[in-house]
């Protein structure tokens, strides 16, 4: 390790919280856009980012009356950045909503299983959306046709006969990942494929094979 490396290390550790949050949010957004299944809700990061966005909007509203050209340009910069952040947050939430709409029952099961852990899968408002949407949907189904079926055929989450009615995303889909730390040997279950993933490497692998490392932050989806 030479002096450059040491200096660089100090620089990384002193990166402001805001910049790290932006990086984390960006990473979550890309991952959510690419991953076949819904990922854990990044609660703390989102809380901080949303709070800052709220304060920034207040600032813009405060200063809009000011016609001084210098402040005016500052405001343009601030607003441009604000719009970029809003896009990021909105696109992230919409990508999650799409997954919730596609596989509601599967995600609800996963969420209920994750409630015991400190970080649940869905945010409170996502959970509320999911449950009330499902309640509306099932009451509509039963009012329009399900109630006329025999009682044994009315369930929407039947698993008898070895076939589950609950749709699942394809967890084996291929994804592009970048390694952020050395993770060692990766083994794709069901095949003879084994390979070593080192820091900085980019691989095309099955989502199920790298899911754990993406969750722990050792790999990122691109």
């Amino acid at each position: 390790m030479d002096i450059d490396d040491l200096l660089a290390e100090v620089a990384i550790d002193s990166t402001p919280r805001e910049t790290r949050d932006l990086q984390e949010l960006t990473r979550c957004w890309v991952a959510e856009r690419v991953a076949p299944e819904i990922l854990q809700w990044p609660g703390e990061t989102m809380d901080r980012v949303l709070e800052r966005v709220r304060r920034q909007i207040e600032l813009v509203e405060d200063q809009t009356g000011n016609m001084d050209p210098k402040t005016n340009f500052k405001l343009i910069v601030i607003q441009t950045e604000l719009e970029r952040f809003k896009f990021l947050v909105r696109s992230f939430l919409r990508a999650r909503l799409k997954k919730i709409d596609t596989h509601p029952l599967h995600i609800l099961n996963q969420h209920n299983a994750s409630l015991a852990s400190p970080r649940p899968l869905l945010s409170p408002s996502e959970h509320q959306y999911l449950t009330s949407h499902q309640a509306l949907l099932s009451s509509h189904y039963s009012a329009s046709f399900l109630s006329q079926f025999p009682a044994s055929l009315q369930r929407l989450d039947d698993t008898t006969g070895g076939i589950s009615m609950v749709d699942k995303p394809d967890e084996d889909r291929a994804v592009f990942v970048r390694c952020l730390r050395d993770v060692g040997e990766v083994w794709v279950e069901g095949t003879d494929r084994r390979f070593e993933m080192k820091r900085g490497d980019v691989w095309v692998v099955r989502w199920s094979a790298v899911r754990g490392w993406v969750g722990s932050g050792d790999c990122e989806l691109i």
Partner: peptide, 10 residues
């Protein structure tokens, strides 16, 4: 089918 394709530098 197994995947595991290196793409360094892409």
């Amino acid at each position: 089918a197994g995947g595991g394709v290196p793409m360094n530098g892409v």
